[in-house]
Design a protein around this nucleic acid. Structure first.
Lengths: 357, 357
DNA sequence: CTGAAAGCGCTTACAG
DNA sequence: CTGAAAGCGCTTACAG
């Protein structure tokens, strides 16, 4: 189906039978004025007399005229559409409630500013780069939101070169001339680790470090700093790499040394991992939190329903999305050229999985 | 922020400083041919010699040329974008996992066919109708997907008049000249009710009937038919109206007559309602399923995690979305004019909440 | 096999 | 306050 060598925006060209649609010229003719006058009425230009406006607006109503946005955008070099670029939309990872919530946040804010969203999903980085170029040149969107920033993201590099307005959800590795939003991942991970240390834990595992994703690196930094400040040495055995948005927690847990002996607490980079690890601990006959405490990130609704309830970090995805749009918007419409970042504070939600009874 | 009297697609007109972008004319000049030739190379027209194609394609590469889709669409009267119209995206109801999954299904299939998705959210029916007209006339999209069909949907009426390609997720009230996808809601509700009857229940409550939404009416029909066929009379007291996608189950349950006496089983039109009702029954000190059995719809992930696990109906949202796009696609690109519907079979997932031990 | 010209439906200097 | 004209960047009959 996908035509070779063409990607979404580029393939087109097909016959089509459209029913005749009212244009600006129809309105102009009907009103006995020039199309330019109708155009100015549409834009509510102050240079048109209010009588003319009224008269023409009435005709617009009567003819049920709606301007062709394509033509308008082509002429004015402006659109009210921004694209969200979603890597691997079809993948399992994308079913994480995190992403829909971000998109909701973006869309809600976009709606406020009379913008629309173009959802573009890509399958791999190569396609992504190509796609970005098409979007930049295609004229359809006036800005871009990248979901999830990776270390050494080639797309960010591409976009920086192009001077096209864009914003990244997730701190990029090179921050300076990029717009981005993120949580205070480092400090919230620090807080979470401190919370565990306060509960008496010294051997704390960290699961789900994904070097590809800055967010997990940041969380790991916070973890390290808390341990160091508390005079606890970092045990490389207790730090486990792994895809952080994944249901592989059960399998990952097997790679850790003996629970309760080698470690008495676990931080997982995502709740889904944490659920898998809880299952593993349960099957080993260990008590949570008495034998091993555990905490996750992202505050799945499920956190409230598992036994014991799972301590987690609420990241406020909706706000991340809203803020991302706002930054993009001011970049597109604003006259001051600037790069902005915004930190959405995450919240530590302490539940039973980390509180000894 | 939202400018009065203008809605998203219509507001525009702003100054913008774009860096010079390569056009088809640049390529033509560089190659010493006419723009029309370059255009034909882009379309891989058989009328161009392969030497010319090769030569021009090389220049396109060198200049990193990407066609302006806006201009192309305007000239060719064709786009590869379809819109999803989402009512009340910002509302709580939309956080139901059902919707993101449908959108995932749509987007995944769209990606296969090289289409993109325009997400357009609206706040109320009035805005929706206006928006539809703008979309139809705006030239940006070549088709429309409506999420959730209501009884007497004014948008469907509008779209039918316009002859614009569209598909509705959810059976519309007037089916004939509308494309739609839906589950076999009536028969799956019938099956579910029969399952309860087989478990010995005769007094079965039905909660969450929302006359505005065809889907709940269909489920109610299935429920009624199963009772009738089993010679059980329908008790109006046991049929409770209410917003079906809502967390008001707890409150709704209070409106039912005495549990265990007046009814021994409940069907809720959505799992979220069912969870609330379970909570109510628990607080009343009633045992599920021994005193009262309960089942929901939509198969929330949570169904597996509540105690007892909740019997539900898996609706395969992803497939609903995929199929919706496919139908729309064949409507846009196909040459045979036809109206199509597709039924995605739902699955009854029987869990402990309806099985006596 | 290729080109010149018209046209898609708008906006926007430029004139008056 | 309004209009005629050019132009946005493509595609597509029409010619040859």
């Amino acid at each position: 189906m996908r035509k070779v060598g063409k990607s979404s925006l580029e393939s087109a060209t097909r016959e089509v039978k459209v029913k005749k649609i009212t244009t600006i010229n129809d309105v102009a003719r009907e009103a006995g004025v020039a199309a330019s006058t109708v155009s100015r009425v549409l834009a509510d230009s102050p240079r048109i007399s209010s009588e003319t406006k009224e008269r023409i607006n009435k005709i617009i109503q009567e003819l049920d005229y709606h301007p062709n946005i394509l033509a308008r955008s082509l002429a004015s070099k402006t659109t009210n559409i921004v694209a969200i670029l979603i890597p691997e939309l079809t993948e399992k990872a994308f079913r994480h409630p995190f992403f829909p919530e971000i998109i909701r946040g973006i869309t809600a804010m976009a709606h406020k500013y009379c913008y629309n969203i173009l959802l573009t999903s890509v399958s791999d980085v190569k396609e992504e780069k190509k796609y970005i170029k098409e979007l930049i040149n295609g004229g359809i969107v006036s800005g871009l939101i990248l979901l999830a920033s990776r270390t050494k993201d080639p797309c960010i590099a591409e976009l920086r070169k192009s001077k096209f307005p864009f914003v990244v959800v997730g701190r990029p590795q090179i921050e300076d001339d990029v717009n981005w939003v993120d949580n205070n991942n480092m400090s919230i991970a620090y807080d979470l680790t401190m919370h565990l240390i306060e509960q008496g834990h010294k051997k704390i595992a960290f699961v789900g470090l994904t070097p590809e994703f800055v967010v997990t690196m940041d969380r790991y930094e916070g973890y390290k700093r808390a341990l160091q400040e508390s005079g606890i040495e970092i045990e490389p055995d207790l730090v486990l790499n792994g895809k952080y948005i994944d249901d592989a927690g059960f399998e990952l847990a097997k790679q850790l040394p003996a629970p309760r002996l080698a470690y008495t607490a676990v931080i997982a980079c995502d709740d889904l991992l944490a659920f898998g690890i809880m299952k593993y601990l349960n099957e080993k006959g260990l008590k949570i939190p008495d034998d091993v405490a555990i905490a996750g990130f992202n505050n799945f609704p499920l956190c409230e329903y598992v036994t014991p309830t799972l301590t987690s970090v609420k990241v406020n995805e909706f706000d991340l999305g809203s803020k991302a749009f706002q930054i993009l918007y001011s970049n597109i419409e604003g006259n001051v050229k600037s790069f902005n970042r915004s930190i959405i504070p995450a919240e530590l939600i302490i539940r039973k999985s980390t509180q000894k009874q």
